[in-house]
Write a protein that binds this DNA or RNA. Structure first.
Lengths: 216, 216
DNA sequence: TAGATTGTTAATCGATTAACAATC
DNA sequence: TAGATTGTTAATCGATTAACAATC
């Protein structure tokens, strides 16, 4: 069982490994990875241990199997379908974001309740009305929903999604959802992220302390 | 000195306190806050202790002073100016995001190097060419930059920003920046966030384990 | 071989949680 | 007063780091 802090570092490893692979390298040491990411070599080795891939003393880790192992551990080796609710500015940006493909995430439909937006095309996807949510989720057996709606409507929407069969929610709304324990919720909360930045800025100002940035 | 985990919970407290305030309440107990956010009451009290606000046994905490104290601890009580670099879909969404106002964050300028975008209006802000970055930062004494650019250009841009006097970077590009320790860097990395969701989904599938969602 | 690097066990560090006295 | 709630000290838990043997 891999710890959450390790999971959070996986994408950074992945990007770096892909970069080195493209550069033509096929082996890399924990020391190098650590140096590039501002981590310690021990931590990198501990994280790598989680993937099941073994390194070779004096050489390091073979890049290709490491990439595969991390992808597999994250479940990114096979595509997962998700729906997106909310076709505002943020929702639109997420719907168009091509990077998701490399995480195995495919947004297969976008929903909104604004009549102006319904029927509009976002990239290749047509915006559907919210009243079709239940049927769509059912017919396409989607398990993951991305929420990019205003805070005020987030809780109610989340409850609806769960009742329609959604098992995991990626929530971009600035609202903490209260849902049954069996539902997986992951937040991407701009306020939380900015709070950390703000706090570090305040510290810097007050006590002249250096930043201590981490992959948080 | 308030810990980072506590800082990360502050925005959630803030939203909840504001909600209760609007509902007409002026006091609230740690028990209630904990219940609403899926935390323990002890943890809430510990976090509240960090703000300096004292509660009253049997009653709880007075909401208004608590809001003020948290805002102040985050430095959100006075407006901070920032520039945004990258006027793509995500950059556009961030530039238009009204929620920033409640964190004291004001995006005062947007930069891009795409000739098509330069001169365009995003909300009330006109997109400026990157070559004006240095002068703008200097003249407006901006210390914070928000980066919403492709991964490939992120490192170089970050180094430029630092050389132009930027002290803190909020990085939305899927790239880990390597910068001097005195620069504050905060990431909002979609890949990291989705990795946690993915890992939890995998766990659920494999061992039928319940979600264990936290305010991460 | 010598030395760089891995992998693991033990020590440290920090945050959460438990226990309980203090208080209105 | 009785009881709910606060605040603090100590215990627990988990992740990071240090130390060191194993290995190519």
């Amino acid at each position: 069982m891999i710890s959450i802090p390790t999971i959070k570092r996986f994408p950074s490893y992945l990007r770096l490994l892909q970069y080195y692979k493209e550069k033509g390298f096929s082996w890399i040491s924990a020391t190098t990875l650590a140096e590039d990411l501002g981590l310690t070599a021990v931590q990198v080795r501990k994280d790598m241990a989680g993937t099941g891939v073994e390194g070779k003393p004096k050489v390091g880790f073979e890049i290709a199997p490491l990439i595969d192992a991390i992808m597999q551990n994250l479940g990114w080796d096979q595509p997962t379908d998700a729906i997106l609710v909310g076709a505002g500015h943020l929702g639109g940006a997420l719907a168009r974001y091509e990077g998701f493909a490399s995480y195995g995430l495919r947004i297969i439909a976008v929903f909104d309740n604004d009549p102006v937006k319904i029927g509009m095309k976002i990239g290749t996807i047509t915006v559907l009305p919210m009243k079709e949510l239940r049927q769509y989720i059912d017919e396409h057996s989607v398990h993951i929903a991305v929420m990019a709606v205003p805070a005020a409507t987030a809780q109610e929407l989340a409850e609806d999604l769960v009742s329609f069969g959604i098992k995991a929610i990626w929530n971009f709304a600035p609202k903490d959802l209260k849902l049954p324990a069996y539902v997986i919720v992951q937040r991407t909360d701009l306020a939380t992220s900015f709070a950390v930045l703000s706090a570090k800025c305040k510290q810097l100002l007050s006590c002249g302390q250096s930043a201590k940035n981490e992959l948080v």
